[in-house]
Design a protein around this nucleic acid. Structure first.
Lengths: 143, 143
DNA sequence: CCGTGTGTTCATTTTGAATTGAACTCAATG
DNA sequence: CATTGAGTTCAATTCAAAATGAACACACGG
């Protein structure tokens, strides 16, 4: 599933292991069970934390950090949107606003050409607006 | 933008070129302008066609196939959902249905463990249902 | 403070996906 | 039917992203 969204398989594996394990797991557990390097697991957990797909659990009397999966679809999706999609959409949007049809003029443009480029740039801005509007709704619909 | 969705940069480039060009372009135009191999362009165009991000245009008196970008956000998004996300969700869903808590039993499970696994499997099925419900709505909201 | 266990960092290596390019098919044209 | 140009296919290559692993912090307990 993650692969279809451009997220590395290993992250899916870590999440999957946590999901399939009733008890919270510690760093080393994951390394052992998945036979992954500590480096990978460290980076993987960091990412999963920033997108809020897992949550740390404190086990008293144990120095280690344990992790549990977040299982609310809404949280998973909005984490992905927030961390992955929104940043892209924003930079893309601000760059789009700066564009003018003449930026494309590799040859001189006919009046018709100018018009189609104008309307396409408009589209770009519309996309931007719609995305900003709809993505938050998606999270809510899933909640 | 495409990269955030796990779509190769080159596809974004082809689409971008078509988007930035008022006239429809032919295969060879794209190869020349982007300095890409024919193989890449061929596969790229195929993908863009299957997700309906571009449409072929017939220019009378010219043997070549020309292409125009599809600029409706709704079509672009639903193409992506249909070709990339839905297939994954389906196979994932059918596999999830076949799972039972005992499939996870690497050690013997306590009653508590069985319960949490049960509830997680339920979640999995809920996800599946919600996704099937919400994704089509997304396309509509964008249209 | 020293040792031990936990987790991080980052330069190197690996790997798998994307790209290339040569060989090919297929249509149209003279 | 040869020829030319358009586009496809697919094995080999490239390359960037991900994984590794050794060196490094950091905290805690003795």
């Amino acid at each position: 599933m993650t692969q279809a969204l451009g997220i590395p398989r290993s992250l899916g594996e870590i999440y999957g292991l946590l999901f399939a394990t009733p008890q919270p797991l510690a760093f080393q557990d994951i390394v052992d069970r998945l036979k992954m390097s500590k480096g990978s697991v460290s980076q993987g957990l960091r990412f999963l934390r920033t997108v809020a797909a897992i949550k740390p659990v404190v086990v008293t009397g144990d120095r280690r950090e344990f992790f549990e999966p977040v299982i609310e679809l809404r949280q998973l999706v909005s984490g992905f949107l927030r961390e992955r999609l929104n940043p892209q959409i924003e930079t893309w949007g601000t760059r789009a606003k700066a564009l003018k049809p003449t930026d494309f003029a590799l040859e001189t443009l006919s009046e018709d050409d100018r018009e189609t480029l104008d309307s396409r740039l408009d589209k770009l801005k519309t996309w931007q607006k719609r995305a900003g509007l709809v993505l938050p709704m998606v999270s809510k619909l899933l909640g």
